[in-house]
Amino acid sequence: MAKSVLSNETELSILEDISFEISSGETIAIIGTSGAGKSTLMTLLAGLDIPSSGEIELLGQPLSLLDEEQRAKIRSESIGFVFQNFLLIPSLNALENVTLPAVLRGDGEDTAKARRLLQSVGLSGRETHLPAQLSGGEQQRVALARAFMTQPEILFADEPTGNLDQHTAENIIDLLFAMNRDHGTTLVLITHDTVLAGRCERLLTIDAGRLVEQQ
């Protein structure tokens, strides 16, 4: 699989000759320096974008054959995200942010489950707080709870601790792995932190758009 973009009329290759498989339940870290193409790889794996050539099969479905709506459907049913900058909806409180994926899927607002999830990330009693009233670490916990709301088969985490201090980051990572274990989710973690990557079962290293190492 490869990905290139047009920039100022010239074709810029971002990913080249990438090929690998991830099995269900695996925890995988994709590492590499800044600009290596990690995040682009993640957007392709999650079906947020499609490759320029080659094919990605997600949960048995070839992504390039699906239109945007069909890919969105797969994401709503089977995929969870944790982003570096949390991306909570500012006008929804913690509880509503957690229930959002279920609402998007058309399942209704399952507040009981959302409360349980918030409790499991240590945010009992903060349900009605808006993102602006929460610290960075707390916001990422809400994002974690949100990611597990629809019991996704795969969880993509893009530098989940990039905006957090050391101590909070460790807590979040512990929580992430614990929840991942409890829910039996496949985890794809994008990071440049090799220590953090070391906690995953498998390591993919990207350098200048190429897969250089698989451990």
């Binding site: 969105a72 959002l100 998007l104």
Partner: peptide, 16 residues
């Protein structure tokens, strides 16, 4: 724009 992109990433369809 960011919220819409985020909702789309979580699987929100155009009609929703």
């Amino acid at each position: 724009a960011e919220s819409v992109a985020m909702l789309k990433s979580m699987g929100a369809g155009r009609s929703w």
